[in-house]
Design a protein around this nucleic acid. Structure first.
Length: 190
DNA sequence: TCCCGGATGCCCT
DNA sequence: GGGCATCCGGGAT
């Protein structure tokens, strides 16, 4: 299985969001390999995207303007860390937001980290999966194409992609920039 | 300084 | 399945 390279993320954010579906997210934690299949993503962009954090921003210091493959992790509602991967070339804003995973390995560790017994609730939401994979502010700025703690590997699985409006936002609903694998029981919401 | 969000779990029907 | 309290850091004023 091949690690995803910088080139994978150096593309149109919408394309990257779609192509990430089915790939395997790997996290090393205390000698364990925790992993899950990416089954739900959203795309966020810049001046053409009023619901993006980079909308109407010109200062290139914002993480969304950074180098492709860099993790952008921030806290939401005071308790949930949300996982984004920067896309597009440096200076052009874009990111893919990871919304849900299908848990693959070391589920018992994930259950302890997220404090739940129900496997279905382990990674079927953006704040839950960061809990279950021990992803927090310390990994902000990490390069997912170089890191030994967290990376993504390719998979050749054929998948059926569905599209919808993004979730949890009030504006920008006209854009169908949420992508998920059809018929997967771990997607956060149909 | 103030305000509120790319969400969750719990408690209610 | 729906309503609600809750968390804290960053952007806006």
């Amino acid at each position: 299985m091949k690690k995803l390279s910088k080139n994978f993320f150096l593309k149109n954010s919408i394309e990257v969001a779609k192509k990430l579906l089915g790939k395997i997210l790997i996290r090393k934690y205390k000698g364990y390999i925790i992993s899950g299949k990416i089954i739900e993503t959203e795309c966020y962009r810049g001046k053409d995207d009023c619901s993006s954090k980079a909308y109407n921003r010109t200062d290139k210091k914002h993480p969304m303007f950074g180098e492709p493959g860099i993790l952008y992790i921030y806290l939401c509602y005071g308790k949930n860390y949300l996982l984004n991967i920067i896309t597009e070339k440096k200076g052009k804003p874009g990111a893919v937001f990871i919304r849900a995973l299908q848990p693959l390995s070391n589920l018992e560790i994930m259950k302890k980290l997220h404090k739940t017994k129900n496997i279905k609730n382990l990674t079927n939401g953006p704040g839950k999966l960061t809990d279950a994979l021990f992803i927090n502010k310390k990994l902000n700025g990490e390069d997912i194409t170089k890191s030994k703690k967290i990376y993504i590997v390719d998979s050749k699985e054929r998948i059926k992609i569905k599209t919808s409006s993004r979730i949890g936002i009030k504006i920008g609903l006209d854009k169908k920039w949420r992508f998920y694998i059809a018929d997967n029981p771990y997607v956060s919401k149909i």
